[in-house]
Structure formats: C-alpha cells, structure tokens
C-alpha cells in the first residue's frame, strides 16, 4: 500500500488540508473509490476505512491481480468534517457540485480539479454518496442516465437494487456524471445512513465492492457473506412516493427493506403539542420500503416514504 497526498490546500490559521489516497497493487488504473466529500458523510468515510482495511489484507495475501491498481480516497473534505459543517468551511459551496473543477478557479473548484486530475483515468469509479433527502435508504447502486451508464457492471455488486435516474441540470457538475463523461464506468453506492455509523451496511458495501473486483478480475479473493442478489434495475418511475399532507412529530411504523402490503401503516404524524394522530401514512400498493424519512419532525408536502413496487423493475 502506498499512501499519497492527492491534493493539498494551504490555509492561514489551520494546518494544510491534505486529501490522502491509498493505492493498492500497481499498474493499470483499475478502480478508484471515493468516500466523503461533504462534512456530514461520516458513514461514507467509515465504509472507505473498512475497505482500506480489507484491501490491506488482500494485498498482504497477494490476492490483488498483477498489473492492477486500486485507489481509495476516504475523505476529500476533512476541513468541513472537523468543524461539523456539511459544505465547504468558508463559502458553503459543495465540492460535489464543482466537477470537473478548474485549477485557476475558486477554492472548491480547485479541490475538485486537483482530485479529478488524479482519479479521472481509472476504469471504474465508485463513490460512497449521500442524498440531500435526510433519511434511511435500502442500500443500492445509483447511476445517472448519461448514455454511458453501465448497468451490467452495476449488477456485479449484487446489491438488491440498481437505480437509474434522469440527469438534471445540477447533476452535470457531480463526480459521478463527470466520471461517466470521461469514460470511467461510474457507480454511486448508497449505504443505509450518512451521519451515523451503520457497521452492517458499511460491511455489506465493502463486500459488494470486493465482489465486483473479483468479477472484474482485479482481485482474486473469497467473499464471505454480504449481498448475493440478482439486482433489480429500477428507474425513478418504479419508486412510489408516499407524501404527507400534515406536519408534526414523525414516527415510522415499518422498517427499510420491509415488504409491505397495500393499506399497511408506514408512518404516523402526531400533533406536537397534544399528541393526537394528525395523519397515518399507508402503503398505496404492495411494495418494499426503499426510503424512509428519519428525523423526528417533518414538514408537510414531504415524500416521507418511497416504495419499490413488487412488480416493478427487471
């Protein structure tokens, strides 16, 4: 393993911010894995740390294929993580809205450019990502439909679901989009949580990546446990939003991954002062809980739960 400084940014009163990369094997730039880019993406960094731990073992056992190199960058934004801020510490911009970056531009454009210059040549790009909607997800692989998305490779993670979605204008400056445009096979991995550690879903994600590495001939190892699904491929239309009309105290009555039947209670919203039930959210169809709101308070007009139709997908 080689530990390299991918990018360094100097500051006036803080230690320089170093983006550190861990390189395993040598030769063809096969796979790059990126962890947290936002200051709250603790689970994403944690999952990378588990992956680095595992790759150390594989390298020691000489189970990384000859002529293949793997790069893991656990954290791109340690400055924001250290002060508990989601976006860039001074101007609140999002590094994951700055790709491919600009080395003569503003600070986060420079960070994006510095990192992208190193990672754009990898054949496969994997990002541990988070969603702007706060809540719990069923682990899945997500890809934007750019025309370059590679669904067959995505299935090799053996996650329960591969989700593709239409590209929106603001997506064009994300890492995933730009990787695809630069002809890297790019995949966003969503584990269950973001701001809290979920050891099980991090472990499952690491095993899924190891499974992909085996399928691609980049490592030759035995993967014990983890997911073994034939991934169901979904698009936005296969996810059914259950929206709330009321606001108040929010409590789930189902769990992520639970198969529910039409009419089953999914969540309740209660009056924050008097405790009475304001609204019951029920499943509009048979399906699997794919996403659920997690915070104890909820606004009205929020997609609180998303279901996968049982009949949907491939």
């Amino acid at each position: 393993m080689k530990k390299n400084i991918i990018y360094e940014l100097n500051a006036l009163y803080r230690e320089p911010m170093q983006v550190v990369g861990y390189e395993f094997g040598a030769g063809e730039k096969s796979v790059c894995v990126v962890g947290s880019m936002r200051g709250n993406e603790v689970q994403q960094m944690f999952a990378c740390s588990r992956l680095i731990e595992r790759l150390k073992q594989l390298e020691a056992r000489q189970e990384i294929a000859a002529g293949k190199s793997i790069l893991v960058i656990p954290c791109v934004n340690s400055y924001s993580m250290n002060i508990g801020k989601r976006f860039w510490s001074t101007d609140n911009t999002d590094i994951n809205r700055m790709f491919p970056g600009y080395d003569m531009g503003e600070t986060t454009q420079r960070i994006a450019a510095g990192v992208f210059a190193v990672i754009k040549e990898y054949g496969i790009g994997i990002q541990f990502a988070s969603n702007y909607m706060s809540g719990r997800f069923l682990p899945h692989i997500r890809m934007m439909q750019t025309g370059f998305e590679d669904i067959e490779t995505a299935k090799k993670f053996a996650f329960p679901y591969v989700v593709t979605r239409n590209t929106r204008p603001f997506d064009t400056t994300t890492l995933n989009y730009n990787w695809q445009i630069w002809e890297t096979r790019a995949f966003s991995v969503y584990t269950t949580d973001t701001e809290e550690i979920d050891r099980q879903s991090a472990s499952d994600a690491v095993k899924a990546i190891e499974r992909l590495l085996n399928e691609e001939g980049i490592v030759h190892s035995t993967v014990n446990g983890g997911y073994h699904y034939q991934s169901q491929v979904l698009c936005d239309d296969n996810l059914l939003s259950v929206r709330c009309r009321e606001a108040g105290i929010y409590e789930n009555r189902a769990f992520v991954g639970e198969e529910v039947t039409k009419g089953q209670l999914l969540a309740v919203i209660t009056d924050p002062y008097e405790g009475g039930v304001l609204e019951e959210l029920r499943a509009p169809a048979d399906g699997t809980v794919f996403f659920q709101h997690k915070a104890p308070l909820i606004y009205a007009d929020t997609a609180a739960v998303k279901l996968v139709y049982l009949s949907a997908g491939s």
Partner: peptide
C-alpha cells in the same frame, strides 16, 4: 403555503 412541524405555516 406549507405546514411546518410546530404550530407554524410557511
């Protein structure tokens, strides 16, 4: 108008 959780409407 959107209801906020605690006794307020945005």
């Amino acid at each position: 108008e959107v209801k906020l959780p605690i006794g307020e409407t945005l």
